[in-house]
Write a protein that binds this DNA or RNA. Structure first.
Length: 785
DNA sequence: CGAAATGGCATTTTT
DNA sequence: TGCCATTTCG
């Protein structure tokens, strides 16, 4: 018996089983043990690799690289037959080669979005059938919530904790700021929240932030707010999105036996989109994989575009150092785009320094050159897009082949208008999420409060919605009592007669209590959807909606919530109110999108990641828009813009259209921008340049006229303004970095940088008291010192 | 308390 | 320019 021939026959047979994949992809699929980094370029079949790798783990285990198992001559003969395609007997193949096949429930596959998790589950089911149901495929957040639901008591929270979304967090921080008398003008709630979030990601506690602040007034204030915010969250038995991850890490770090339990449960871990992980996520993954080290991360450093929300590209760049002995597999063969498009992407991204060198290639055709349309203004740009789409529609009869991508949402406006004008159906991605609508948030707030009687924030939201005569002042009293006596708002209502300050409101409070008491009871007795009907009726909320404008839409939305509740009940093993609320908190609009009708898609480049279209239009290739002017003074930010460009380019399968405009109206102001530097970086040999000569000429002729018109308009405005202020029009003052200035609101500071912009310049000023701010020179009330 | 008016603000976004 | 959140007024 010849072991080598068994082994090589086995490898050949397995290669045939996974023959739909190229050699590099197979390498990733067969490598089951130890740390693995799969650098998967755009369109390189990343998801396919993940799905097949899991299939390999479950069916064959470490069969491919194993040398311990031996086979007899019959086995070898069978394997040869299989390899040559003379038999398809899968069961026998598995029996002969499998080595320690991995049980589905020992696999944890983590994605960033629910949509990705859903797709993964679907593809796994298609490939593996029933067994796939036992694979834990979910987002970081749902995986952690699941763990916290059974373990969080160790950290002093209750199991029925409520998840606060960003809107809730914002309300909470505003409340906290009000309590500490911090004006929202002095410190933007959004900024405070983002600093808290940043601190949480770094796992810095309020006390540590405080210690770190030293004499920095702003930092000290933020640490105070952070401390109170956490205190209130805990009292409400609520966690925010950051907490979900942070608390899980805390749990694992404080309780080794709990960590051990989950290490044993999740023996094999895969992380998708690893380039977008932040610090806590890295820590979490490190902890979980710490014992067995079976960690496979998949991602593309060239597509890391979420630095602004905490993604740390160093996680993927440093993987080999952090996980010693990691195997690195590069997937560079692209199955999506033409070679020309790939060359454009390669060419742009090669200007970045902080990256792992990769070159995308395809065995497919060269394809057409990149089409550059140099528009006169944003209307001309939109017209070009619409015309081109119409032309393609004539050929293919499909609108859905086309997507228009832009750097910022504000750019969609001009495109939308033109598409409407030309009768082209379209859909805009992003925007208001279903669960963010007021009526939906109100109803879920009712549900939340009934589910968690400590949830003060939700209680506040709905106690007087519809009006029950319980206004702000009464609420403040309730809140104080609840805090002082450490009891829930529900309890305060229950015992309202006992508290003197509430004596005038006893009737209203009593009836509110009875209502919530009744609903709480019903929530335990009735099926969820029936309970919702009772709630809508008993609270009078549905009736109150009827009186509003757009009542129909709002009622429809509430009905839709009922539908998703019914769906949840069908799909969940054990439907509970808490479970439903968890879904509401963790799931987003994108998960409900079907995308089935024939429409052009409009979206930001960020939301286009992972998608592909025959024809891609990237509009606004102006320096200042894309790349964003905010990235001009930081090389790191510019590199991220460049990665974004790479993402945009590689969305196109067949044709790529890039447009810029010599003049464009944005935020009510006309800007003149030079062509995006990325156009130059693509290289002229890949580009076919076009413009609208007639429009250009007309534009030039009109330009003198329009400029004078604009001037006279501004002059008039200035005159009007000066009349109001009864002072002479401002003289243009020039500023230079290093100058000391005084601002009417922010106080004294030093100019850090001066960026000239159209007719004005943007000053970055480090104020002594309020930190660094960006201000337009002409608008700032500045005095030179 | 609710509608109207003002004012400030404007990358990118998932959970 | 257009949206929103907050203020202001009746």
């Amino acid at each position: 018996m010849d072991i080598n021939s068994y082994n090589s026959a086995k490898q050949a047979a397995l290669k045939r089983y996974f023959s739909r994949m190229n050699d590099m992809q197979q390498e990733a699929v067969f490598t089951v043990n130890g740390p693995v980094l799969v650098l998967a370029g755009a369109g390189s079949g990343k998801t396919t690799v993940i799905v097949n790798r899991i299939a390999n783990m479950i069916n064959f285990g470490n069969a491919y690289f194993d040398t311990s198992r031996q086979g007899n001559d019959d086995d070898t003969a069978f394997l040869k037959e299989y390899a040559e395609g003379r038999t398809d007997d899968f069961d026998t193949l598995r029996d002969i080669v499998a080595v320690d096949p991995i049980r589905p429930w020992n696999i944890l596959a983590i994605t960033f979005t629910n949509k990705a998790a859903g797709e993964l589950k679907e593809r796994l089911s298609a490939m593996l059938g029933e067994e796939a149901l036992n694979i834990h495929a979910s987002t970081f957040h749902s995986a952690c919530v699941r763990i916290l639901r059974s373990e969080i008591e160790a950290l002093g929270y209750g199991r029925d904790f409520t998840i606060y979304d960003s809107d809730d967090s914002q309300r909470m921080i505003k409340n906290v700021m009000g309590e500490l008398d911090v004006s929202e003008k002095q410190l933007a709630p959004k900024a405070v929240l983002s600093e808290i979030s940043f601190a949480k990601d770094k796992m810095i506690t309020p006390a540590e932030l405080r210690a770190d602040a030293g004499q920095d007034y702003r930092k000290k204030m933020i640490s105070k707010l952070y401390a109170l915010y956490q205190e209130r969250m805990r009292a409400a038995n609520a966690v925010d999105f950051d907490d979900i991850l942070v608390l899980t890490v805390e749990l694992f770090e404080k309780f080794p036996e709990v960590l051990e339990k989950y290490r044993n449960r999740f023996k094999y871990i895969m992380v998708d989109e690893y380039q977008d992980t932040n610090h806590v996520q890295f820590r979490l993954v490190s902890l979980l994989s710490g014992g067995h080290r079976n960690l496979c991360v998949v991602g593309d450093d060239d597509q890391s575009i979420y630095k602004f929300r905490g993604a740390n590209i160093e996680n993927i760049l440093g993987f080999e150092e952090q996980f010693e002995g990691a195997k690195v597999i590069r997937l560079e063969q692209n199955y999506r785009s033409t070679q020309t498009i790939l060359n454009a992407a390669n060419s742009v991204i090669s200007n970045n320094n902080g990256r792992k060198p990769k070159t995308l290639w395809t065995s497919g055709e060269q394809g057409d050159k990149v089409y550059w349309y140099k528009a006169v203004d944003e209307t001309d740009e939109a017209k070009f897009v619409a015309d081109t789409i119409l032309a393609s529609y004539k050929e293919t009869g499909r609108y859905s082949d086309n997507a228009v991508l832009y750097r910022m949402n504000a750019q969609s406006n001009s495109i939308e208008r033109m598409l409407v004008k030309c009768g082209i159906p379209y859909r805009v991605y992003g925007g208001m999420r279903f669960y963010d609508r007021k009526e939906i948030k109100d109803v879920t707030s009712y549900l939340s409060f009934i589910n968690n009687h400590n949830d003060m924030l939700r209680f506040r939201r709905i106690i007087n919605e519809p009006k029950r005569g319980i206004g702000d002042s009464t609420l403040t009293v309730i809140e104080d009592i609840s805090r002082d006596l450490k009891i829930s708002p529900f309890e305060v209502l229950k015992n309202c007669e006992e508290y003197a300050p509430l004596s005038k409101k006893v009737t209203a409070l009593r009836s509110a209590y009875q209502m919530f008491e009744f609903l709480t009871e019903k929530s335990e007795e009735l099926p969820l959807d029936e309970f919702l009907d009772v709630l809508l009726d008993k609270t009078g909320y549905l009736d109150s909606l009827k009186a509003l404008e757009n009542a129909e839409t709002k009622i429809e939305n509430v009905q839709e919530l009922r539908t998703s509740m019914a769906q949840y009940m069908e799909q969940a093993e054990e439907p509970t109110l808490g479970g439903f609320l968890e879904e509401v908190a963790l799931y987003t609009e994108a998960d409900r999108d079907d995308g089935s009708d024939d429409k052009v898609t409009l979206m930001t480049i960020h939301s286009a990641k992972g998608l592909e279209y025959e024809n891609i239009f990237v509009v606004g290739m102006d320096d200042g828009i894309f790349p964003s002017s905010r990235s001009f003074d930081s090389e790191d930010d510019m590199e991220e813009e460049r990665r974004l460009a790479c993402v945009a380019i590689t969305r196109a399968k067949k044709r790529l259209y890039l447009t810029n405009a010599s003049q464009r109206m944005i935020f009510g102001q006309t800007q003149r921008n030079v062509t995006s530097r990325f156009m130059r970086e693509i290289g002229s040999e890949l580009i076919e340049k076009h413009d609208n000569a007639a429009a250009m000429k007309k534009h030039l002729e009109e330009n003198d006229k329009s400029v004078t018109e604009v001037r006279s308009a501004t002059l008039q405005q200035q005159l009007a303004r000066s009349k109001k202020a009864s002072s002479a029009p401002k003289e243009a003052v020039t500023y230079t970095a290093g100058e000391k200035v005084s601002h009417s609101i922010f106080g004294e500071g030093i100019i850090v940088s001066v960026t000239p912009m159209s007719n004005d310049s943007m000053l970055e000023i480090a104020f002594d008291k309020v930190g660094t701010k960006k201000i337009m020179a002409n608008y700032a009330k500045l005095k030179k010192l």
